[in-house]
């Protein structure tokens, strides 16, 4: 599955991407994490507060670093 982290590259966005990668490894899930910094793409997802998270092109979260439980839920749901 493809996970996109939406954000301009601030500290929280980096933390979000790292946490998703970690949880993915712990679950042995096949996950590619990609950081999206392009303003136009972020606009298409209609995200106004970053970091946002989109999974396979669908927005699942925005506005904060997501909790581990949330990430586990997303990754398991698609595994």
């Amino acid at each position: 599955m493809k996970v996109e982290v939406l954000g301009s590259g601030c500290k929280k966005c980096v933390a979000t991407a790292e946490r998703i990668t970690e949880v993915g490894q712990a679950l042995n899930a096949e996950v590619t994490v990609e950081k999206v910094t392009d303003a136009e793409k972020i606009m298409r997802y209609q995200v106004m507060s970053t970091p946002g998270v989109a999974i396979d092109g669908k927005l699942v979260h925005s506005g904060s670093v997501p909790s581990r439980e949330d990430i586990e839920g997303w990754l398991k749901g698609a595994a």
């Binding site: 954000g7 301009s8 601030c10 929280k12 606009m43 209609q46 106004m48 507060s49």
Partner: peptide
Amino acid sequence: PFCSCSSIPLFLGFTS
């Protein structure tokens, strides 16, 4: 509540 790192998404969200 608003962090300046969200300026651009906010600008675009409002504009669009």
